[in-house]
Design a protein around this nucleic acid. Structure first.
Lengths: 119, 119
DNA sequence: TCCTCAAGTCTATCGCGATAAACCTCGCCT
DNA sequence: AGGCGAGGTTTATCGCGATAGACTTGAGGA
């Protein structure tokens, strides 16, 4: 789903929406000024673009997300494994863990997640 | 290590080097023309930039890598988990796997990698 | 009626990554 | 002594994501 590809600025912006939706657009402008240092028009420009793409929605000055954060995250995770690890999750994991050590407890949690995906 | 951050074009280029090093620079130009559609000067421009950064090396017309592919991959994997998953590997894994199903064998392989990191 | 302010659009500008044109040097061959 | 190709640098140009300035519209209050 190429649709879910967000650029850096877009992702930061969308994150603010996800964290605060539903949110009034003027209030959102204020938040972006605080957290991103954006001017009003910048916020509206990005908001419009994401709305046109069906990612967000601005109706009667109330902004909500049409696409879930999880869906964008899923796209991101797949894209990286695809681009840098030939689509191989094992390769990704090996690289990520590296010499890094994890606790027995963390290992359990990860194995649990993996079990969940076996069917 | 911010040093390992490669842009898209740089990464594609470095990949060709990793796959073929040591390689003569003129030969590398030919490869880039074939695989990336680049002109000679484009190849040299990118090569110089990566050499200046200590990622690659061009000595007596022989190009080699000073930084291992694995190190760049490690940076990439960490960056994504950091940026999109609050640094949480479990969150990344959950998102990546999603409804996707994996075989018992693949699960074993993954668990093996995880075990390796416990200490 | 006029002012204000919320709400939003349209059209730049700007920085930077991606790509390349033009030019240079130097050894080698004829 | 002149051409030629390998090897390389310097200096643009270009596309696009990031950001914003200027302007518009419409409701509500003094």
């Amino acid at each position: 789903m190429e649709k879910y590809k967000l650029f850096d600025a877009e992702y930061k912006f969308a994150s603010i929406v996800w964290d605060n939706e539903p949110i009034n657009s003027t209030e959102l402008v204020r938040l972006c000024t605080d957290k991103l240092g954006w001017k009003k028009s910048t916020t509206y420009t990005v908001l419009k673009k994401l709305s046109d793409r069906g990612i967000l929605q601005n109706k009667d000055a109330v902004v909500t997300a049409l696409v879930k954060r999880e869906d964008v995250q899923k796209y991101e995770s797949n894209a990286v494994v695809e681009k840098s690890f030939e689509g191989s999750l094992p390769k990704f994991l090996t690289s990520f863990l590296g010499e890094r050590k994890i606790t027995e407890q963390e290992a359990e949690e990860l194995k649990q997640i993996i079990e969940e995906a076996v069917k």
